[in-house]
Design a protein around this nucleic acid. Structure first.
Lengths: 343, 343
DNA sequence: TTCGGGGACTAAACCGCTCTAGTTGCGGGA
DNA sequence: TCCCGCAACTAGAGCGGTTTAGTCCCCGAA
């Protein structure tokens, strides 16, 4: 015989399927003695629930969906995603919830998957990352009515729950720190311009340089790759008005920028200060170690998991969880401009 | 009305459920005109298959399981996993197969999940990583009879399919290269000793240093973290007989080692050569760039996907795919020992 | 003209589990 | 003693597909 079913158990114990179902789910409707006997036999026969059969009846799928629309080859590069995923899964594992993962080409395909998985009851909810400036996914998911947590904000995620950090405030803290050191020419190697948080950072940078009456800050867009980060750095350092500080939207790009500076004979931090807008092991083991806006991405994943589970448990309970603003961790890559003149 | 079902379509078209099923699955049994009409209506009603219902009938789950037993927090650190996962998913996506991911505490829990998912028809197959020296998972999975691909080998994965690279040969190539440069004291910062590939590397190192009549090589075990990599490096560089070259089992540890060397005033590559047993963006953007055994982890994931899909399609078709031995990519972190004396 | 064969389509069983409506039997209160 | 109420348990109807065993009808061959 193949997999034992509750019918097999029922036959063996001499009760009905219903009784077995009640017993196995800890529901009232069977006496203690019978219940014990059923559990005993179920264990002996090594019975396990058939999730598809349960799902048919409308039960939980015990999984959440994560669909990512990025060229897959760039995903492995950033520690961010891996960290987030680990934290997420760690949080979900506690309730035996798995992650159903799929990488697709574009947002259209992503939404198609949402529709598929939702109507197939394949997942209990979705997690949306890479919030775009004007994001069609929000409306689509609202319409589907499936519990969803959007990573990113604030705002612009309609009626969906969200987990977010204040990128704006974080960027302001960076600029203020650099300005206090004496920097007046700050440049920015940004990420994908279509991302909402990229825009927030660019705007925050521009606003605060104006407010502090620094030179107009230039933001160069990239695709988050080390190659484009390096190229942008080369472009910035080749300008006649070379910036004295560069803020990078990711740690990988900051590290690439550090390499370019070395290659061009620009000393860090003496001639150039570098700040990474994301922290990981990379910034710590670089030489010099890179000053970074640090947030615990693993913990962030855990918080997303928590909100997700809460929303699944009670779909009415919309949540907006603001995570701590990333803290600036000062390391060796930043100093007052021109400090090297004192050599 | 909620989700439309085939019964709804059947009613609207005026045929039976069976006819609709035939039409939607491109199976003979309905005429062309009827088929077209059914497809038309299905589209209008925005019908989508309910995977749970299909699974009940024994169809594919369109997902493969990946269960990882490691402390989740260490996962995000290594680019390896993220790369592998990306490549895997990229390969699977082509056939619309998703990855069902779960991170657990230990191997016992891992095997429990295998049993759960297998008997619940939740996945069509499993991918096993982190092959252990004596691995209980192999037997358990063989018994379950679910298509499985083991990443790692050669050998010791019973009747299961596998994808592997020759770590032994790779290590030999590193030692020969270092020996040719003139190194006689080679040390090794290894990974987790319970892993099969760690043992293979340690043995390969020991064998080839003997064969080449170099000093006995010491291998220090770590947990793959940058912290332990740094600690091991400190220990090695503090010895009276300091090694002139260190081979690291991961790029993260190599980078950490590079940092320690800098901190201890040991110049790389003049006084110490560093080789990483894994390549990624990290080794390239380090300064100096780190000589590394390079393999395309993303492609590796793709190959695992390929074998997985093949084994799912035909469970009898066991495969053993040997991937290219990692190539040694020489960068700035290796040189002849004592080259610095020429300064 | 009759019969056979096959294509088109239907009815219903089935997959494994959940859940509701209903039946039985027992104990306690009037 | 009778009846009510409740706990324990059963029967069976779904859930949304797939699939098998038919049924019906039309066409071609003998």
């Amino acid at each position: 015989m193949g997999r034992p079913t509750i019918a097999d158990i029922a036959k063996r114990v001499g009760v009905s399927k219903g009784a077995v179902s009640f017993a196995l789910n800890g529901r009232p409707g069977v006496g203690e003695a019978t219940r014990a006997r059923i559990l005993q036999v179920a264990k002996e026969m090594n019975w396990r629930p058939h999730s598809a059969a349960r799902a048919l009846g409308g039960a939980r799928a015990e999984a959440v969906g994560l669909v990512i629309a990025r060229p897959a080859s760039t995903l492995g590069v950033e520690p961010f995603f891996a960290q987030l995923l680990s934290g997420l899964q760690a949080g979900l594992s506690a309730q035996s919830v798995a992650t159903h993962l799929m990488i697709v080409e574009d947002v259209a395909a992503e939404m198609e998957i949402y529709r598929d998985w939702a109507s197939a009851h394949r997942v209990d909810g979705f997690i949306v990352v890479d919030l775009k400036v004007s994001d069609p996914r929000i409306g689509a998911l609202e319409e589907l009515g499936v519990p969803t947590v959007v990573l990113g904000g604030p705002g612009r995620h309609g009626s969906l729950s969200s987990v977010w950090a204040d990128d704006r405030e974080a960027m302001v803290s960076v600029v203020e720190y650099l300005a206090a050191l004496g920097h007046r020419h700050i440049a920015h190697v940004a990420g994908l311009p279509a991302f909402r948080h990229t825009q927030r950072r660019i705007r925050a940078l521009r606003d605060s340089t104006r407010r502090l009456e620094l030179a107009e800050a230039v933001s160069l867009a990239t695709d988050f790759s080390d190659a484009e980060g390096a190229a942008a750095t080369r472009a910035l350092l080749s300008r006649s008005r070379r910036p004295s500080a560069i803020v990078y939207d990711s740690d990988v790009m900051a590290l690439a920028g550090l390499g370019v500076a070395g290659e061009m004979g620009v000393r860090v931090p003496d001639e150039l200060s570098i700040v990474a807008f994301d922290d990981s092991v990379l910034t710590r083991i670089a030489h010099p170690a890179i000053t970074a806006l640090s947030r615990d991405t693993f913990a962030l994943g855990g918080q997303v998991a928590e909100v997700m589970l809460a929303v699944i448990a009670d779909p009415e309970a919309r949540q907006d969880l603001r995570t701590p603003t990333p803290r600036l961790v000062v390391r060796g890559s930043t100093a007052a401009p021109g400090a090297w003149q004192g050599d």
